[in-house]
Nucleic acid binder design. Structure first.
Length: 481
RNA sequence: CGGGGCGUAGCUCAGCCCGGAUAGAGCGCACGGUUCGGGUCCGUGAGGCCGGCGGUUCAAAUCCGCCCGCCCCGACCA
């Protein structure tokens, strides 16, 4: 009978997710609780994410660097809110080389402190600014409840860190990078996101304010898919990062940080996946085109394989192509297998196709007969290029329609409670933490963000959905990962 | 850390209540053949310290105690 079917997304979304990750061989559980191994297919996806982001970071003037994994414990105590936020989830090295260390070392949960420390040595003059750095690396946060990709004790990410001479410049940078994330999410991952500002209670520990891109998963829960923080002078003061400005005055720098992690892979899975498994956005898919040859006997086998290999070479010039020439599994098995792995386009070639100088194209976003067409060898590359773009567009359209269909504007507190059971609520909010806390306590929904202007109603909000006092913001409340 | 559940083959599980001899099934894996346009079929085979430690007993996967680990729900979170 082969493999058991995946649980459907409808019946058990959480289990569907786990099974997809494991069976598509994106990742596996590591021997330590809460840690994961990213398998080659998952890592290839991450590498494509890295490329797409890194290119954007370079284009906006950033350089990559690498700061160490181990940070003196005392660094975390220099910024009050930062230590309060991160102390509970620090992993600490107390011994080295068989001896107890004089000062324990924290395994970085994020690198503001060590980078701040280094900057205090490097930055002397306004001519040294802006300092625009990024690092690709891993961090450790001792989370209590973990889930593959979404929340693991160790995760991979990029963290950008910048220092500026003025507040305005730093604020601009914070928003610029949020928009870079938005552009990446939409144009590479086909994930529609709502950019916005985090409330006081949801912002990063040590930030003046935090911006986020929020994405709706297939079960309507929200996922913070990327964040950008304006850190003000908090870390500059904590680490004494001062520069001599053009006016000969000694000033503290203004800093930012922004990050996007392997969690984003979880977003890709949960936004696009279907009951057959993964559906990867074409621009990030490790394999964009898989060729499945079909034959009956040895004569057909050699004929079809030869053509399949030619196609592989030809298409390989423009796309990431894989030829599945395994001869111990049937074509039907391969169809299911590659659908599970989310490959956007499948090229089937059998004896009939060879005779007619055509192939059968199957698009992953439309499983079954609906997504199948016949295409001539002539001009196949252009045909596939157009198909990949079309798949990207339709994934984005589908995800946007889904999100909009589940983004509601409840009028009453009770309605809010209803709506967040299966969607997001866009409501007026007075800005007080008590009201946020009450929604969380009553409905398990949190304040995801105060959406930017293009994502809020044109009119001003009237009353806070909770207390009825005059509203100061439009806010999105939702259950979240 | 509080509440609930579960640890037997790579995976999913049966056996445990009511102790008994070489511990089973399906899938997966290996080999041979067959098949190949939607998860082929048949045969042969490999694979287990029954989570760990201790106790009860002539005898423990099975009964008792302690420990460890995992999953789900809460508190915490990229």
């Amino acid at each position: 009978m082969g493999y058991p079917k995946l649980p459907s997304r409808q019946e058990n979304f959480a289990e569907w997710y786990n099974q997809v990750v494991l069976r598509a061989e994106l990742a596996d559980y590591a021997p330590v609780r809460g840690c994961m191994v990213v398998r080659p297919y998952g890592w290839a996806l991450w590498e494509n994410i890295q490329k797409a982001l890194d290119q954007r970071f370079k284009a906006t003037g950033h350089q990559n660097a690498a700061f160490p994994l181990l940070i003196p414990m005392s660094f975390f105590e220099r910024e009050k809110e930062h230590v309060e936020g991160f102390a509970p989830e620090l992993a600490v090295v107390t011994h080295g080389g068989g001896k107890k260390l004089e000062e324990p070392l924290a395994v970085r949960p994020t690198s503001e402190t060590i980078i701040g420390y280094m900057w205090s040595k490097w930055i002397r003059s306004y001519r040294d600014l802006p300092m625009l750095l990024n690092q690709w690396g891993n961090v450790v946060r001792w989370e209590l409840r973990t889930k593959l990709f979404l929340r693991t004790l160790e995760f991979y990410w990029q963290e950008g860190h910048t220092a500026h001479a003025t507040r305005e410049e730093a604020e601009e940078e914070t928003l610029r990078m949020l928009r870079v994330y938005e552009d990446f999410a939409v144009n590479e991952a086909a994930i529609p996101v709502i950019p916005g500002q985090k409330s006081e209670s949801e912002k990063f520990a040590g930030a003046v304010h935090t911006y986020t891109i929020e994405a709706m998963m297939g079960d309507t829960k929200a996922l913070q898919a990327g964040t950008s923080h304006f850190l003000g002078q908090n870390f500059a003061r904590a680490f004494d990062i001062q520069f001599l400005d053009a006016d000969n005055q000694l000033k503290y720098v203004w800093t930012t940080s922004w990050g996007l992690s392997t969690r984003f892979i979880g977003a890709i899975i949960m936004v696009h996946g279907d009951d057959q498994g993964l559906v990867l956005p074409p621009r990030l898919a490790p394999i964009q085109v898989v060729i499945v040859p079909i034959w009956r006997d040895d004569a057909q086998r050699s004929q079809v394989l030869e053509m399949a290999q030619r196609l592989q070479r030809q298409l390989g010039q423009r796309f990431r192509v894989h030829l599945d020439d395994r001869d111990h599994v049937t074509p039907g098995f391969k169809f299911n297998d590659w659908e599970l792995r989310g490959v956007p386009v499948r090229v089937e070639i059998g004896p009939r196709d060879v005779a007619n100088q055509v192939v059968t194209l199957a698009r992953r976003d439309q499983p079954g007969k609906a997504g199948r067409t016949t295409a001539a060898w002539e001009g196949l590359e252009d045909r596939i290029a157009a198909l990949l773009d079309d798949i990207h567009d339709s994934l984005l359209r589908r995800a946007t329609a889904f999100r909009d269909a589940h983004l509601h504007r409840p009028e009453t507190y009770d309605e809010l409670g209803q709506v967040v059971q299966n969607g997001w609520a866009l409501v007026g909010w007075c800005g007080r933490a008590e009201c946020e806390a009450r929604i969380k306590a009553d409905f398990k929904a949190t304040n995801r963000c105060l959406p930017f202007v293009e994502h809020r109603p044109t009119e001003a909000p009237t009353r806070c959905i909770v207390c009825g006092e005059p509203a100061r913001h439009w806010a999105i409340f939702a259950k979240a990962y």
